[in-house]
Design a protein around this nucleic acid. Structure first.
Lengths: 238, 238
DNA sequence: TTAAGTGCAAAAGATTTGCAGATCG
DNA sequence: CGATCTGCAAATCTTTTGCACTTAA
C-alpha cells in the first residue's frame, strides 16, 4: 500500500505559501483551505465567519491582512461583481485566465473563458500604445433556470400560455406581456417599441435561430436570440 | 438674432430628469451638470466636494441617494475600477456601450469599444442558456506616456541605453534590466525565464512586429508586441 | 534570535437610515 | 396639498492601523 498523504491539502497549501516566499501560519493555511475547498466566491467577512468556526481566536484584521497579502503575492485573486452588495470576493489564482457571469436573480456565478480579450489588448496597443496587463470581464444577466422561472412567473400572472419570443416559430403571433432585461438593454427594447401589450409576429429565424426577425407596429426588426429570450409573449390563437 | 439659450445644460438636465420620471431638484441638476461637464470619472465623495462649492448646504446623504437613484433610473452609469482606491465612479449613461482602461501608474482612463463582447454573450447563450444583459470590461496596464517614462527611469537607474524588448531589431542582443507587468503576466514572464540579468536576443519580428520572437537561455520564445513592451533591455554593443 | 505575523481594540472610511422640515408638481 | 426630497446627525458596515505579544524559520 502506498503511503497515504494525511493532510494533502494542508501540505499543498504550505508548499504554495513557501513557493511564494510567505510564512506559513495556521491562519493562512486555514484561509486558503477554506477558499480552495469552498468552490464559491467568498468575501472577507464570509471568510472571517467561516474561519472563526475552526479557530475562534482568529481576528478580523488577520483575515483582511492575509487576503491582501495573498492577493499581492498572486496566490489569490480578488474579484469584483457589480451587483449589490458590492464587495470583493476571493478565489485561488488559477493559471488559466477566466471571467465571471453572475445571475441578477439568483446570484449564481458561472465562469467562462474569453480569448477575445487578447485581441482587444492588441488593438489598444496599436491604437493607443497602451499595454494591458490586467483584464476583468464581468457579465450579468439571467441564468437558464431563472429565465424559465421568469417565464413561469409571468404565465401565472397573466393566466395564459406565455412563451419567450425566442421560442416562437415563424408566422406565430402574440402579445408582449413582459419585457425583461436591465438598463441599456431594456431601454433599447423600449426604443424598438417592444412594450407590454404590443402585438408581435415572428417573421423568420436565421439558421441557428439567430437572429430572430419579427414585426411590431409595422416595423421589421430583429434581435439576437439571447435578447429575444427576455421578451415574454402570450400566444394568440388564430 | 436667435434667442440665446441661457442655461442650455440646466434645461437639458431638467428634461432628462422629467423624461425619466424623476423630480428635478436643484441638487439633482447640480450633480448631473457636474458629471456631464467634468468629463472625468468622479466618485461619490469627489462629487460631494465639488457640489459643496456650488451649494454649501448640500448633504452627503443627498449625493449618495441621488447617485443611487440616477443609476437605477438609467441616467447615470456606475463604474468600478479595480485599482486602489477601489470605489465606484459615475458617468452619464451614453447610448453607445463602452469600457475602460486605467493606467496603473498615472491613473489615466481611456475608453474603448469592445464589440467582441457581443460574441461572448452569444456563446454563453448557446452553451449555458444564459442571457447577458449587462457587461463590464475593465482593463488596466500602462499608457504610452508611462511606458516611455518607465523606460527612461530604468535607463537612469542602469546608466546605460535602455530600450524595450518590443523595439529591438532582429539580431540585436541585450541584457534584461527590468521586467514590468503585474500579477499573472509578470508570473508568466518569470516562467519564461525573462528575469533581470538574463541575456536576450531577438530572432525575428512578424510582419506587424507582432509577435516578437527571441532567444533566452537557449529557448526560442515569443511574446506579443504589447507584452514585449514591458521588458526593458540594456543593449549589448558587439 | 528576530523579522514577521497575530489578536485586540480603536480608528478611519464609505454608505445608509431615521426624522423633522422643505419643496416639487 | 401630498408625495417626495433634503439636510443633519447618528448608525452601519467594511477595512485599516497601532501596539503589545507570539511564532515561524
Amino acid at each position: 500500500m502506498l503511503a497515504v498523504e494525511r493532510k494533502p491539502t494542508s501540505n499543498n497549501i504550505r508548499d504554495l505559501l513557501k513557493r511564494n516566499a510567505l510564512r506559513s501560519t495556521p491562519q493562512r493555511v486555514l484561509l486558503l483551505s477554506l477558499i480552495q475547498s469552498s468552490g464559491k466566491h467568498l468575501d472577507a467577512d464570509q471568510l472571517y465567519e467561516l474561519a472563526r468556526r475552526r479557530d475562534d481566536k482568529i481576528g478580523r484584521a488577520t483575515v483582511y491582512r492575509n487576503l491582501k497579502r495573498l492577493v499581492a503575492a498572486g496566490v489569490l485573486r480578488q474579484r469584483f461583481f457589480e451587483e449589490p452588495p458590492i464587495r470583493s470576493y476571493y478565489e485561488m489564482a488559477t493559471p488559466a485566465e477566466h471571467y465571471h457571469f453572475t445571475c441578477l436573480r439568483c446570484g449564481k456565478i458561472i465562469e467562462f473563458a474569453c480569448p477575445e480579450i487578447e485581441e482587444v489588448g492588441q488593438r489598444l496597443y496599436h491604437i493607443h500604445g497602451i499595454v494591458v496587463s490586467h483584464s476583468n470581464v464581468t457579465l450579468s444577466g439571467y441564468c437558464a433556470t431563472c429565465l424559465r422561472e421568469i417565464e413561469k412567473g409571468v404565465e401565472d400572472q397573466v393566466g395564459e400560455k406565455v412563451i419567450s419570443l425566442a421560442k416562437l416559430s415563424p408566422g406565430q403571433s402574440g402579445v408582449i406581456v413582459y419585457v425583461g432585461g436591465e438598463g441599456r438593454l431594456r431601454r433599447r427594447f423600449m426604443e424598438m417599441g417592444l412594450i407590454k401589450g404590443e402585438k408581435i409576429t415572428v417573421e423568420r429565424l436565421a439558421p441557428l435561430g439567430d437572429p430572430v426577425e419579427f414585426l411590431v407596429k409595422g416595423y421589421h426588426l430583429s434581435l439576437r436570440q439571447n435578447e429575444a429570450t427576455l421578451i415574454q409573449v402570450e400566444l394568440s390563437t388564430l
